[in-house]
Amino acid sequence: MSFGIPFFPQEASSEASQVDALFYTLLAFSAVLGLALTGLVVGYAVKYRVGSPADRTGQRSRNMWLEMSWTIASLIIAFIFFGWGATLFVRRDHPPADALEITGLGKQWMWEFRQPGGQREINELHVPVGKPVVVSLAAQDVIHSFFVPAFRIKQDAVPGRTTHIWFIATEPGHYHLFCAQYCGTQHSEMGGWVTVMAPEQYAAWLNSQGEGETLAASGEKLFRVLGCSGCHGASSKVRAPALEGIFGRPVALENQQTVIADERYLRDSILIPKKEIAAGYEPVMPSFDGLIDEGELQMLLAYLKSLSPQPSAGTKP
């Protein structure tokens, strides 16, 4: 900040400084190339203006060597920037295994978050400094986009699927949270603040919020209320697949294929049970499409994931 005029955004995540390194390299490259071209054009314009005494002999209107070399140079530079950007980008898909998992739900026009302990927040997100955090995003109605400029991250929340974003906050503070994907009338009001706190303060803040019910616990309750346990429970008469440890495991399907039971599979199995039928079971499960909303679906997913011992870091579909 200089004279209160913002030139550069704050850097508050591990990602931010790396993205900025690429950004500033691109900026330097663009400035050099742009100014060089401007200088060239202005220089020519002055030197070869009508009536100037400049030497105009030996002019050529093509030069194979020159044209080849700038084409190849552009290609090489482009590939360097491509490789650099792509290397940083593919890490989005690989969150650390020990990440704190928070669910985020976008709806017109607010963000609703659930901490791992079940504490619910609206348009506020509290995270500890220095610890990886995965936010699993879903959308209730239209497409929204989770955007924290200080972290240099952004991810759309799309209705009908779960997406993920992860980050390690590095600086305690108070940062803007925006919805970046236009989502209707109050789009610009949709957002709030991300508060990054030292781990002790974060723990204290969690406590002060009261020990809410965890998402998984709510999911378990829902699992009984909706009658899922009637078939999937151990003692049920109807034969339905047992769900203990299902998350992340391969499932054999009736059509001889095998899929990994990821979030996409579980979500589809609840909403579209006839789509992929587990081998050896009757397709008797009713669809819950329209009976539960995105928030409840997130609870059920959290519960199913909690039945699996391994860390449930996000795997993208």
Partner: peptide, 29 residues
């Protein structure tokens, strides 16, 4: 000539947007 300048500076910004990790930040801004 103004086209030449403006197109160049617009086109160079395109490099930022094509670079994946930077685009994540500046997309939809």
């Amino acid at each position: 000539l103004f086209f030449l300048g403006l197109f160049t500076f617009g086109g160079l910004a395109g490099l930022f947007l094509a670079a994946l990790a930077v685009d994540v930040h500046v997309h939809d801004t």
